[in-house]
Design a protein around this nucleic acid. Structure first.
Lengths: 90, 90
DNA sequence: TTGGTAATTAGCGAAATAACAAATTAAGAT
DNA sequence: ATCTTAATTTGTTATTTCGCTAATTACCAA
């Protein structure tokens, strides 16, 4: 949970998540849509994977990235809990 | 919206928000609960204020910080919008 | 005006972050 | 085995962030 926010602090990583929200993509396809180089993108994908926000599946030489919807849903639930529990009396 | 995530990337700032969620506090009171020095805390409070997440009110020599619930609610709505409409195929 | 308390600003060094080019691994095809 | 394509890892550099101490501002009281 703590590094989730650090992960989301990068606009490149948020852009990647927004794209994966629409459809699964390979690293190369993502790179074509962004302005960063492939090595830079690879680093961002590693961070997203470490945060368990994306899932990978290799097919031959290409690797497809997709959103880990389960974890994303949990993240949203935690976020709401972090900031909006006026009722909670401890 | 973009710097909101940068703002939330610090655990110190998230702790401050959690505390202010419970009750309003002065900078000194917040400092007593955390392990950082007062100047360091002041910097974090400035960032939170710049992000419009907290509101300040001076009473004599003390300044009371409180959560800007309006902006926090907007933030949560935006977060949900950013990540949770995977099914929405339009 | 002088003193005391609360909080901030200024300045510095250490650590983390992000980007790139170059080199390397992985898998499939010839 | 060799070549090609896709993607990653390595190594380097520059920028940003974080926390501290020291100095400063703001306010109130005597």
């Amino acid at each position: 949970m703590s590094d989730i926010f650090t992960t989301l602090a990068s606009s490149v990583r948020r852009d990647i998540l927004s794209m994966l929200k629409e459809c699964d993509m390979t690293a190369g396809e993502i790179a074509d849509k962004l302005t960063v180089t492939k090595p830079t993108l690879s680093g961002h994908l590693n961070i997203l994977k470490a945060a368990d926000l994306v899932i990978t599946e290799r097919q031959g030489t290409t690797i497809t990235y997709s959103l880990n919807t389960t974890v994303v849903d949990e993240l949203l639930a935690n976020l709401v809990g972090l900031l909006s529990n006026k009722d909670e009396k401890e």
